[in-house]
């Protein structure tokens, strides 16, 4: 016994360290950790609570009824308002605070070309024109009203 006392002292030191670790672990690990899986359950709620930027289609129709109705029967019916008008959650919450973007006449040809400029990489049956040949200089909306394009 006398000749292994030094070993017992070291073993005791180990026990102290392990107990200290367990106490530290108890204090440091977030309370919600492991409640659902091996992660911090609160993180899920934090991510759920992140702010919205796009309001979503259903936020627009109640006020902008005419445009919504026109669009609903047009070839653009699948396109959501914010695809062209920008992220508008702020506008949906307080309509006067932020005015929706609308492509200006001068920029319109470039704006529409983003989707409709002739490009071999696009699906062939998607409507495309060469903007250099197709009525150059004329705003697209003169012939193709964006909410009811022909």
């Amino acid at each position: 016994m006398k000749d292994i006392r030094h070993l017992l002292h070291v073993a005791a030191a180990f026990v102290v360290v392990i107990i200290g670790f367990l106490i530290a672990r108890h204090l440091v690990v977030p309370k919600s950790f492991g409640r659902i899986g091996h992660y911090r359950a609160d993180a899920v709620d934090e991510i759920k609570a992140l702010p919205l930027r796009y309001a979503g289609e259903q936020a627009c129709a109640p006020c902008h009824r005419a445009q919504a109705k026109a669009k609903a029967s047009s070839r653009h019916k699948g396109i959501r308002c914010e695809s062209c008008h920008g992220a508008l959650q702020a506008h949906a919450e307080a309509p006067s605070s932020l005015k929706p973007a609308k492509p200006k006449e001068g920029e319109m040809r470039a704006f529409c070309a983003r989707c409709h400029e002739k490009n071999l990489s696009r699906p062939a049956k998607f409507p495309q024109v060469d903007p250099r040949e197709h009525n150059p200089g004329v705003a697209c909306s003169q012939c193709h009203p964006p909410h009811q394009p022909k």
Binding site: K2, D3, R5, H6, H9, V10, A13
Partner: peptide, 8 residues
């Protein structure tokens, strides 16, 4: 030494 100087 961990408080032990026994080197028998």
């Amino acid at each position: 030494t961990f408080g032990v100087d026994n080197v028998s």
